[in-house]
C-alpha cells in the first residue's frame, strides 16, 4: 500500500468563477482567496490613483471590505474577477483621492534632492515613487474622470479593453475610442506639466 504523504497539504487553486460564486453565497474563505490572489494588483492600482503607498494600503483594505459588502453583485468576466475588483478599487481610490489632494500636491512639491540617511533608503524610495506618481496624476487630472479611469485600468493596471469595458460597464468600442483620445491628451498634458 502506498504511504500517504505526510506534512504537505496541497493548496487547491480555485478558479475565479468558483470564488465569485462562493463569494456571492457568502463565503468569507472565497474573499480570503481573492485577497491572496489580487491584493497586490489592487494595491498597485490604488497607488497609481492616489500617489501614496499608505493611502493605497488603506484603499486596498477598503476595496476588499467593499467586495464583501457588495458580494451580491460579484461578477467575473471571461473567467476573471479582476475587472470587477479593480472597478470597485477605482471607486474607492477616487473617493479617497478627494480627501487627499492637498497631501498629493504637497508631496509633489517636495524637493527632489533630499539627503536621506542610508537606513531610510526604503522610505526615500517610497517618497520618490510618490513624487513621480503625483506628477503623473497632475497631468492625468486634466482628463475627464472616465478617461482617467481608462488610462489607469488599461495602460497602468494591464486590463484588456474588454476587461476595462466590463470594469466600467461601458461598451468596448467606447473604451477603444476614448482610450486613444485619452492617451493623446495625457501625452499633451504630461508635456505641459514638464514645461
Amino acid at each position: 500500500m502506498e504511504s500517504a504523504q505526510i506534512g504537505v497539504i496541497p493548496r487547491v487553486e480555485h478558479l475565479d468563477a468558483e470564488l465569485v460564486a462562493e463569494l456571492r453565497s457568502g463565503s468569507p474563505a472565497a474573499l480570503g482567496e481573492l485577497f491572496d490572489r489580487y491584493a497586490d494588483r489592487v494595491h498597485n492600482h490604488c497607488f497609481r490613483r492616489t500617489a501614496s503607498w499608505d493611502a493605497a494600503e488603506d484603499a486596498t483594505s477598503t476595496t476588499f471590505l467593499e467586495l464583501w459588502r457588495t458580494r451580491d453583485r460579484a461578477v467575473e468576466y471571461d473567467g476573471s474577477a479582476l475587472p470587477w475588483i479593480l472597478g470597485i478599487a477605482t471607486n474607492v481610490c477616487h473617493n479617497s483621492n478627494r480627501k487627499r489632494r492637498r497631501h498629493l500636491r504637497a508631496v509633489e512639491r517636495l524637493p527632489r534632492d533630499d539627503t536621506t540617511p542610508d537606513h531610510a533608503e526604503a522610505v526615500a524610495g517610497r517618497i520618490d515613487d510618490e513624487r513621480r506618481m503625483a506628477r503623473m496624476l497632475r497631468a492625468l487630472d486634466e482628463l475627464p474622470r472616465r478617461d482617467r479611469d481608462l488610462v489607469a485600468l488599461v495602460a497602468w493596471s494591464g486590463l484588456s479593453y474588454e476587461q476595462a469595458a466590463a470594469s466600467l460597464d461601458i461598451p468596448v468600442g467606447t473604451v477603444r475610442s476614448r482610450l486613444s483620445r485619452a492617451r493623446r491628451r495625457l501625452a499633451d498634458s504630461v508635456n505641459r506639466t514638464q514645461e
Binding site: H43, R48, D129, M133, M136, V151, W156, A187, T193
Partner: peptide, 11 residues
C-alpha cells in the same frame, strides 16, 4: 516623462 514612466510596482 510619459504614461509608462511610472514607479515600479511593489508587493
Amino acid at each position: 516623462m510619459n504614461e509608462h514612466d511610472l514607479p515600479d510596482e511593489r508587493p
